[in-house]
Design a protein around this nucleic acid. Structure first.
Length: 824
RNA sequence: GCCGGAAUGGCGGAAUUGGCAGACGCACGGGACUUAAAAUCCCGCGAUCCUUACCGAUCGUACCGGUUCGACCCCGGUUUCCGGCACCA
């Protein structure tokens, strides 16, 4: 141990030590309780940013702490390494996507090692490696065989800039999640996963995820968007057709005055063919189809539509009502058609006003301020049924179920549940992704590649022009193949998989990363899964976290994994900002981890980022704060160095705690162990854990100034300080640990236990309140009964002075805390 | 509009079960050491008032009200901010 804290040599020394000794290598060990801590793996963009540092620092503290507490800890890392940036680099700079990606991976591996993270590097996974995507393809085939994957032509989201389709989840405010370009619609034949089959389970299981933030669960609930209602059939007058509508307001059925179909509804073309309505309908359709989602929703309240010349018959009262098409009805939700009740739905009301349609009230608000026959807006609240035949007089909320029951008996409707969630569009017209292992044969249709032929390798004879179809289509070798079923000439699928598939099961692969016979061995995943603590950014609340849950459920149904849910506990870390704003190149406020590690070292960077804010909250980067953390580490280092210089003992731990100063130090020491143990292990409050370690350091600085220092005890306290600080700042702690004369690495040192009795002092300071206001503080013996406390306090002259001449109404005593005297 | 979360000194934040509001750190001010500076160590640091000073008093956790001996914490209402969903029938 040098006199000065030289973080550069200390950090490289211990990183080398951990690596050479394989300090973090993990095996399945049935005799030990396992703990799986996982941080969301990074995309290899080139360099780490502060968000990564925060994510991995949090995970590393948990991993190191659990390991010292005797758990068999799985703490892996890898790279989510397929995706568009690699391909864009190829187009822009002519670098091969594979080379670009692997160079970045190596760069980032180096940076992660510099942070001193306790990963088992032997389990590293890269999703762009054939060893990985082979099993991705295998899983795809299992899903296909199970009927979970299908190809279908549909209007899909198309990003003109990325030149590919997007899943609904990747369209944010009508724009591409990645490049922010407005997304258009295209009719294309694409591969889907039937995630909607799992809508109910994805929703209901959320209640079992007690270790998840409420915020994330709410976001997923909103996204799945379950609504319970009824499907009702309306006959179309003068045809054999019947149109189904979905409604959550079956109680308003008698108030229907018109119907609306989505412009894309399959009936529309046939219904207007050859009539005078054909031309205006076609014109409207053209207009709607040329709008992207932003334009379509920007005219929020201004309703448009066209009458199609046909009428529907209300099954409950035989009333003939006109059918319109309008873009406020969406083909993708419900049945793509609605019954319109302008009196009780604002959208229908706006439309009815514009087209001068009838408005029939069927729910009476029972409020004299509302003129039910002359509404100025739709009445959507609770009321009493009117104009509704036998339902009149009933509460409308109760009438919903009664109406559905009746419709069911009459055979004209039934209870239905609808979801906002759509099937997951998983194919992409891009090169740098897992090839979809499907083959199209003229005779056999779509056939999966034979499993023994996996992986279907990405070809390298491709061109990146940035124009036209996917680069894969430029390969001479890739497309041609034979049908795995009949052996005839056939064509390979040219699309690749959405990279969100790769990240939907990587946590399973970590359990058995090097398996070349299977995606993973069930015995191993049974041992390690599920993930005890998952840590990552809240931006993945819907996309990744829902897809991964879906994968786990589907794999569970295939008998491949034990649990239905992959992540037991979830911690969503807040963003790292600078000056209250997101760090970004365009603002120019980016602080790079490289720069900070170079100036202060990894330990300081880790310490600051954990100390500056609780993990879930946003963290504002502060250069002064970093200085403070660096100062603290120097302060600890000096404490240990100075102690060593003067230490004359032989390492013996025999000592007595005698003086008041000993007792105080013992109290603070045990309090710190308790606080750090609970804050790290229980509630992930790293900032308060660190603050209590700082208090211990302050206490030791005071203690060492005393003339009667108990050297053996102080050694014990300093040893313990170094142990509890080590999960946060491992390098400097290893160095100090060695300096303190220990030969073993801190990684395997058992976590200290605290002595509850040391936390009980002989006397305790209590507060004396008069009418709830603090007036006096007294030292009394610990553990006094309420009665004794009251007697002691009342006998105190200062208290008597305070209550003099007043009538004592009541005295409340809380043991070891306070006495409150209520006076008049 | 619906749903979720938040609001505490100059700043980041603490108070874990209803019991001393402001731990710990940053910034700032003062002192010690030094020829000097840096570093380090020590002290102070919510507001207002009283006081030469000490001592003390009052107010104070977004706002209004309630429950309680006692409320940052529980209940009712309001405001602002952040996030999600939204022409979803």
């Amino acid at each position: 141990m040098n006199e000065r804290y030289d973080f550069k040599s200390v950090e490289s020394k211990w990183q080398k030590y951990w690596e050479e000794n394989k300090s973090f290598k993990t095996f399945e060990d049935k005799d030990k309780e396992k703990y799986y801590v996982l941080e969301m793996f990074p995309y290899p963009s080139g360099k780490l940013h502060m968000g990564h540092v925060r994510n991995y620092a949090i995970g590393d503290v948990v991993a190191r702490c659990k390991k010292m507490q005797g758990f068999n800890v799985l703490h892996p890392i890898g790279f989510d390494s397929f995706g568009l940036p690699a391909e864009n680099a190829a187009i822009k700079h002519g670098v091969e996507p594979g080379k670009w990606t692997w160079d970045n991976i190596h760069e980032m591996e180096g940076q992660l090692r510099q942070l001193g993270l306790s990963y088992d590097w032997d389990r590293e996974v890269q999703t762009c490696s054939p060893d990985y995507y082979k099993w991705m393809q295998w899983i795809f085939i299992q899903f296909y065989k199970k009927g979970l994957a299908y190809k279908k032509e549909n209007p899909v989201n198309w990003c003109p800039s990325c030149q590919t389709v997007l899943a609904n989840e990747q369209v944010v405010d009508g724009c591409c999640e990645r490049c922010k370009t407005p997304v258009g619609k295209k009719n294309l034949s694409q591969w889907y996963f039937k995630i909607t089959d799992y809508a109910d389970r994805l929703l209901d299981n959320l209640d079992t995820l007690t270790g998840w933030p409420e915020k994330v669960k709410t976001m997923q609930r909103n996204w799945i968007g379950r609504s319970v209602g009824a499907k009702i059939a309306f006959k179309i007058d003068g045809t054999d057709l019947s149109m189904d509508v979905f409604t959550t307001r079956a109680d308003t059925l008698f108030g229907v005055t018109y119907m609306v179909m989505a412009p894309e509804h399959p009936y529309v073309e046939g219904l207007v063919k050859g009539t005078e309505y054909e031309a205006p309908v076609k014109e409207y359709l053209d207009k709607v189809q040329h709008m992207n989602d932003i334009e379509r929703t920007s005219t929020t309240n201004e309703k448009t539509g066209v009458f199609i010349g046909k009428y529907a018959i209300n099954p409950v009262n035989g009333k003939k009502v006109p059918i319109y098409i309008s873009d406020y009805v969406l083909m993708g939700y419900g049945t793509g058609a609605i019954m319109a009740v302008p009196a009780h739905d604002q959208r229908d009301f706006d439309f009815a006003k514009k087209f001068d349609l009838e408005i029939i009230p069927v729910v009476d608000p029972g409020n004299p301020d509302i003129d039910i026959n002359n509404l100025t807006e739709a009445f959507a609240a609770e009321g009493t049924m009117i104009n509704s035949g036998k339902f009149d007089g009933m509460n409308n909320r109760k009438a919903i179920d009664a109406m559905i029951e009746w419709l069911n008996d009459e055979g004209i409707g039934e209870k239905t549940i609808n979801y906002r969630l759509r099937d997951w569009l998983i194919s992409r017209q891009r090169y740098w992704g897992t090839p979809i292992p499907m083959i199209y044969c003229e005779d056999c249709g779509w056939v999966p590649e034979k499993e023994e032929n996996l992986p279907v390798l990405l070809p390298t004879d491709v061109e990146f022009t940035g124009k036209g179809a996917s680069p894969l289509t430029t390969s001479k070798s890739f497309g041609e193949c034979t049908c795995p079923r009949c052996g005839k000439k056939a064509k390979r699928e040219m699309d690749t998989m959405d990279t969100f598939l790769d990240s939907s099961w990587y946590f399973l692969r970590y359990c058995d990363a090097k398996n070349d016979k299977a995606a993973f061995d069930k015995e191993k995943t049974d041992y390690w899964m599920n993930v005890d603590q998952y840590i990552g950014g809240v931006e993945h609340a819907i996309l990744h976290l829902m897809y991964a849950r879906f994968f786990q459920m589907a794999l569970h149904d295939l008998g491949l994994v034990k649990d239905e849910e992959p992540f037991k506990n979830l911690l969503t870390q807040g963003m790292v900002n600078k000056d209250g704003k997101k760090m970004s190149k365009s603002i120019g406020n980016v602080v790079s981890p490289e720069e900070i590690m170079g100036k202060y070292g990894a330990d300081t960077a880790r310490l600051f980022i954990l100390f500056a804010a609780p993990p879930e909250r946003e963290l504002d980067w502060s250069d002064e704060g970093v200085e403070g953390s660096y100062r603290f580490l120097n302060r600890v280092y000096r404490l240990v160095y100075d102690f060593n210089k003067n230490y004359s003992g032989d390492g013996s731990e025999n000592f007595d705690i005698t003086t008041d100063a000993d007792k105080e130090l013992n109290y603070v020491l045990n309090g710190t162990i308790k606080k750090v143990t609970e804050d790290v292990g229980g509630r992930f409050s790293f900032n308060t854990a660190i603050s209590s370690i700082m208090e211990l350091v302050n206490c030791l600085y005071r203690y060492r100034e005393r003339p009667d220092v108990n050297e053996a005890f102080m050694k014990k306290a300093i040893d313990t300080l170094v142990i509890v600080l080590s999960p946060f700042t491992p390098h400097i702690c290893e160095e100090m640990w060695e300096g303190l004369g220990h030969s073993d690495t801190l990684v395997n040192v058992p976590w200290p236990k605290y002595d509850e009795s040391a936390l009980v002092l002989d006397t305790v300071e209590i507060v004396v309140q008069i009418n709830g206001r603090v007036k006096e503080k007294l030292d009394i013996a610990t553990g006094m009964t309420r009665e004794d406390m009251e007697k002691t306090v009342m006998a105190e002259p200062s208290v008597q002075a305070l209550t003099e001449g007043k009538q004592i109404v009541k005295v409340i005593a809380v043991p070891d805390k306070l006495v409150n005297i209520v006076v008049k």
